[in-house]
Design a protein around this nucleic acid. Structure first.
Lengths: 261, 261
DNA sequence: AAGTGGTCTAGACCACTTT
DNA sequence: AAGTGGTCTAGACCACTTC
């Protein structure tokens, strides 16, 4: 990455390219460099989720650029949900410990009535070796240690979601079944608070399948009944995949809500 | 809406609120007003899909504001996919007649290989009266004239999608079966070119269901086989709903791809 | 060379929150 | 009153496209 210039003109000078320099150096706009620096501070934990980051003026002084340039950098981070702006207060590191964040990744909403968060029942937690398909998806090697979690989520007492999670063992080393059972709220909140790993985006593949025996029993439905089947890979900073989640969703009274923009 | 002030200070003056004025007038930032004016020109067809809109400098002169303010307005329109910026060329009205737009609304992609657009087979086209549930969703009254379209879409010759579309009869008056059959490419392209109605966003509800007799026959599968079931309402300018689309998707070799950001 | 969008700066003032 | 993000301006220069 380019270094941040100490005066406004040096970037332009660099961009013009001195004789003998590589043909196509990876130049980027100043505000992108600032954005990368701020992202680094987020990733390193210099500012933790929920905390206030330095003001625009302060960051502008620190990086020796104008406030407008810092502003543009933060604008993009806000658009990517990495930070949250609050007028008069400051800019905060985004966190999964907020109602507004809960339904960004959980898209199941009731056919009638207002969305609410499901209850959580942990079925199984194990330390195992990664199967080939799992390893490939979360950037590990076959046989690497992973944590396997199985759970059922219920809305108003009705079991609706069966999920299996695969997590890199190295990152989530201290994760215990007890902690998972006692924890209320989104698992991403737990990951962020206790393992310093914040999920920032996810990629999901959705299919329809017939319920297998196991799922049918857990969801209290007939085997073969149609279920939504989701395979999701979640990414943390640097587009690093750190979770594979396979879910079966009963869509009799809830549905997957998606906005196409 | 507020009128655009002819000098930079008048908006601030208005925002401070004269004595005796309503308590909470609906003031909005200048750039939002400019954005609304540009959107109006898009909606009215002053600039048609694919066309170049006036340059930032020209718009700034027209509206008597600075280029920066126009820029911020256009930035938001670009973020909402209403226009497309191209450096050195200008800003263009977005259109569905582009490869890049095709997969914004069609989320079915192959499990392996690169996404491509399906072939289209029109099964039925009728002018009917809107059932209550359809009318409610696209902002009509029960019994209002609607156009009903049924079609099957195939990837590589394999029928994969059965869709039923409901369109307000008033807006799509001249729509004929012949035109639909001969038209290649996304239907949204046809709607935009020939009916001046451009879809700008959609809201989708997804479920898993068992195939009914009709769908099973069209998709060449067994009745009861699991299918993705989507109900989508599409909106044009002003958040006006103008299409209801109900689809059944066979997800044996294709899946619904979704990015959670 | 001229025109377009893209970046960067500097300074002013506003709206909101806290002290 | 002081500090924060939000808006708006004016001017400079850059990168890209077209003539």
């Amino acid at each position: 990455m380019n270094s941040v210039p100490t005066n406004p003109t040096s970037n332009a000078a660099a961009a013009s390219g001195a004789a003998g320099a590589p043909a196509t150096p990876a130049f980027s706009p100043l505000y992108q460099q600032i954005k990368a620096l701020i992202t680094q501070s987020l990733q390193s934990g210099e500012w933790k989720p929920g905390e206030l980051i330095p003001s625009e003026v302060e960051l502008a002084n620190r990086f020796k650029v104008s406030q407008g340039t810092v502003r543009k950098a933060i604008d993009e981070l806000a658009a990517e949900n990495l930070v949250v702006r609050r007028q008069g207060k400051g800019t905060f590191v985004a966190t999964h410990h907020e109602a507004r964040a809960h339904f960004r990744f959980l898209r199941m909403v009731p056919d009638e009535g207002v969305p609410h968060y499901p209850e959580n029942k942990i079925i199984d937690v194990r330390r195992v070796r990664a199967p080939a398909d799992v390893a490939r998806l979360i950037d590990l090697r076959s046989g690497d240690p992973v944590i396997f979690i199985k759970r059922v989520q219920s809305f108003d007492g009705v079991p609706t979601i069966v999920e299996e999670l695969w997590l890199p063992g190295l990152i989530f080393k201290g994760l215990t079944a007890e902690r998972l059972v006692e924890y209320k709220g989104p698992m991403y909140g737990l990951f962020e608070s206790e393992f310093g790993t914040r999920m920032i985006r996810a990629s999901e593949q959705i299919r329809a399948v017939g319920a297998d025996e196991g799922a049918a029993q857990l969801l209290n439905i007939a085997p073969g009944a149609p279920l939504l089947c989701s395979e999701r890979v979640s990414f943390t900073y640097g587009d690093k995949p750190v979770e594979l989640r396979r879910g079966l969703y009963l869509t009799s009274h809830y549905h997957y809500q998606n906005e196409l923009n």
